[in-house]
Write a protein that binds this DNA or RNA. Structure first.
Length: 707
RNA sequence: GCGGAAGUGGCGAAAUUGGCAGACGCACUAGAUUCAGGUUCUAGCGGGGGCAACCCCAUGGGGGUUCAACUCCCCCCUUCCGCACCA
């Protein structure tokens, strides 16, 4: 369907093999570089969709698509190593000057870089070492206990055979059964358990207890923390609850220490750090640890590797084969695409539906030729959408993903438009894949989108219009009823594009009526005998001048609105004003067709990008040999932008009392002279009492009168 | 809790180096055209008062700066978005 006026020749369909073949190819490229790998880990599981999800697709502990509470499972899955690009994804945000700050902030938060140090603690009565990550190595003297995440690999060994073994096992089991929302949500209680084991604080030799707690996460830092209750609010709350010692190491704040003191200050109770402020103390402690091999400076990220396996049908099959002899072997490029089988049974098994198709599963190992099994998971569809913009400019390539020459010529995308809901999904993934392809030497740029504009949502009945919510407006039906020009015009006229807007079926009539008005005007004028004549304009009357000015003002306004931030709504209202004036003007018996012709031609050209079909039709009926699209953009004549008279406001003590028509550029004395002829003003104002006059050229004059 | 954006007629909204609030459109009302409905055209349309000329009030609320505030400053309210045990 080409009715919207799109160029469907450039269409790409990511669920068809001639597209996803290249998604699979990109997977192989990442795999070659060690950026696609398989590992067993604790992953997000949506119990309704029966598939794993990436962290980015879990919103407030719920599935982004179906809103179910997400569970945690230990599963072996495929990942993309986006964490290897964390620093670049963060640093390069700075160069994206034409991205909204909001989106950049969201990406920064999501990547979540923290500088700090790793510190090793020896466990008493055993050979183990617990390594913690902290952003506050300066407070090491104040560390009064350690906390491990329940999933920490050392936990089982630490409690084995001890008096706390049973309790610890129960604690770990209960933490595992909780959803992330139950465990980490805002109402979650801090749960803890003393393991009965102790460790040595490396900086002062103090013996401190080792706890387990639900609020420590295995997948951030090292899964273990040192607790400094005096200077960390979470540790403070935990220490109060479990009656653990609190030792102040930074001066200042509440002398009674009724809450954690997290501000900067001078170190105390800290040996060689005493007297330093936080910043220098951090550096000195890191150095001290490094010299003694007790720790090192370290950086942690919140960003985790991108889990791309899905137990879904729709997605590119992951092109890997599991051979009992050779292990995981990539499908050779020449064997791509690995096609989605058609004869699939869809059963809610929690495993990929592709598992049910033996012809798909059973494959020869590409390495040894032996019997092997294909990976049956498909890739997250966000992988498909992370590179489609490269394919758009090479949509017909059949022997490669894209033509690098064409891609390097056209991309990065000059102007990208999308919803803010993609801030940490599509937009982050696309940046990552682009950087990988750049590093592989396949493209010449490492950011996909130069400018980003986040448009608002269209709502209906106050809720987001979406396919899944079933409240979307069907363009086809509207196009059937009104034509695509009306549909396009209304969506542009509905409001400022960055703002959410409520769809109103009735208001579409307004756009339809406007185009009808333009069309009828055009047809009527075309019948005027002299309409085609390009007669010179001599000594135009005031009405003629008014229309010419309006024409050139409209060209200017529309040009500025469209170039400076997609203000289509006000551009369209300016064109409506021109049309309204044209209707008045044409009724004037002396109306001149060359002036009408200039106004109408300008209008048609301004409408071209918005309502291409009707605009091209009118353009062609005017007898132009070239299409409107090839005829350029109208220019305005600056001489015709300003009127020679202007209406100014006449105020007394700041209140409007009257209005006056005066020549443009008239000076203060002139304005006063003009204004005093006004009888209406005379009754409201005694000139003898005027103490002060404020005059703004071409805008207003304000007489200040004493009491 | 922290950070950001927003709040203007019945509705979508205009107006920003401070200078005539409500352009443009929807809905609505009246009139013309029409057998009628629809279409089209004309006019009206923030609230209150007045026969009228006009007057008063009004941009979430309260204060302030100014001749002049939707616009600048301070306090507050509401809505939406992001972050929220990330050590």
């Amino acid at each position: 369907d080409w009715s919207m006026g799109y160029d469907w020749d450039k269409e790409v369909v990511s669920c068809l093999p001639d597209y996803y073949r290249w998604t699979q190819w990109i997977f192989l490229k990442l795999h070659e570089k060690g950026l696609a790998y398989r590992k067993k880990s604790n992953v997000n599981w949506c119990p309704t969709d029966m598939t794993v999800l990436a962290n980015e697709q879990v919103v407030d502990g719920r599935c982004e698509r179906c809103d179910s509470l997400v569970e945690q499972k230990d599963l072996e899955q495929w990942f993309f190593k986006i964490t290897e690009y964390a620093d670049r994804l963060l640093a390069d945000l700075q160069g994206l000057e034409n991205w909204p700050d909001r989106v950049k902030t969201m990406q920064r938060n999501w990547i979540g870089r923290s500088e700090g140090a790793q510190v090793d603690f020896k466990v008493e009565g055993g050979g183990e070492t617990i390594t913690v990550f902290t952003t506050r190595p300066d407070t090491l003297f104040g560390a009064t206990y350690l906390v491990l995440a329940p999933e920490h690999p050392l936990v089982a060994g630490l409690v084995a055979g001890g008096p706390k073994e049973k309790e610890a096992q129960a604690f770990v089991a209960s933490a595992k059964n909780l959803s992330s929302l139950e465990r980490m949500g805002e109402n979650a209680e801090k749960q803890g358990l003393d393991t009965g084991r102790r460790a040595v604080n490396p900086v002062n030799g103090q013996s401190i207890p080792i706890y387990l707690a639900n609020y420590v996460l295995m997948n951030y830092g090292t899964g273990a923390i040192m607790a400094v209750p005096a200077h960390d609010t979470r540790d403070f709350a935990f220490a109060k609850k479990f009656n653990l010692p609190i030792l102040r190491v930074i001066e200042g704040g509440d002398p009674e220490l009724k809450e954690a003191h997290t501000e900067d200050g001078r170190l105390m109770n800290s040996g060689f750090l005493d007297g330093l402020t936080v910043g220098p103390a951090k550096a000195k402690m890191a150095e001290w640890l490094e010299q003694r091999k007790l720790g090192k400076a370290s950086v942690s990220y919140r960003l985790r590797d991108w889990l791309i396996s899905r137990q879904r049908y729709w997605g590119a099959p992951i092109p890997m084969i599991d051979c009992p002899k050779c292990g995981w072997v990539p499908v050779p490029e020449k064997d791509l695409p690995v096609k989605l089988p058609r004869n699939v049974e869809f059963k809610p098994t929690g495993e990929s539906p592709l598992k049910s198709v033996p012809e798909f599963v059973n494959a020869a190992c590409p390495k040894c030729g032996g019997a092997a099994k294909r990976e049956t998971d498909t890739m997250d569809t966000f992988v498909d959408s992370s590179w489609y913009f490269l394919r758009y400019v090479s949509s017909h390539e059949s022997t490669r993903a894209f033509d690098p020459q064409v891609v390097n010529q056209w991309l990065p995308v000059d102007q990208y438009i999308g919803g803010v809901e993609h801030a940490i999904l599509h937009l982050l993934y696309s940046r990552f894949i682009t950087k990988v392809l750049k590093d592989l030497g396949l493209i010449a740029f490492d950011e996909p989108f130069k400018r980003l504009f986040t448009q608002g949502m269209i709502t209906k009945g106050g809720v987001k219009m979406s396919k899944s919510k079933g409240n979307s407006v069907q363009p086809d039906e509207l196009i059937q009823k009104y034509g695509s020009d009306t549909f396009r015009l209304y969506t542009l006229f509905i409001g400022p594009p960055e703002r959410d807007a409520e769809w109103d079926d009735r208001a579409v009539d307004g756009s339809f009526r406007f185009l009808g008005r333009v069309w009828r005007l055009f047809v009527e004028l075309l019948e005027r005998p002299d309409f085609a004549a390009k007669a010179p304009l001599e000594a135009p009357a005031e009405a003629d001048k008014q229309l010419r000015r309006k024409t050139h003002q409209t060209i200017q306004k529309v040009t500025q609105d469209m170039e400076g931030g997609f203000k289509f709504n006000t551009a369209i209202s300016a064109m409506m004003e021109l049309v309204n004036l044209l209707y008045t003007y044409k009724e004037n018996p002396d109306s001149k067709t060359p002036i009408l012709r200039e106004a109408v031609e300008s209008l048609i050209r301004l409408l071209g990008p918005l309502t291409p079909h009707v605009a091209e039709e009118m353009w062609s009926r005017l007898g132009h040999p070239k299409t409107l699209m090839d005829s350029g953009w109208p220019a305005f004549d600056p001489d015709w932008l300003v009127a020679d008279v202007v209406e100014i406001a006449v105020q007394v003590n700041g209140k409007i009392k009257s209005r006056a028509l005066v020549p443009v550029g008239l000076d203060e004395a002139g304005v006063k002279r003009e204004v005093q002829k006004d009888g209406k003003l005379a009754s409201a104002l005694d000139m003898a009492k005027v103490k002060k006059t404020i005059w703004v050229q071409d805008k207003l004059v304000n007489f200040i009168v004493g009491a």
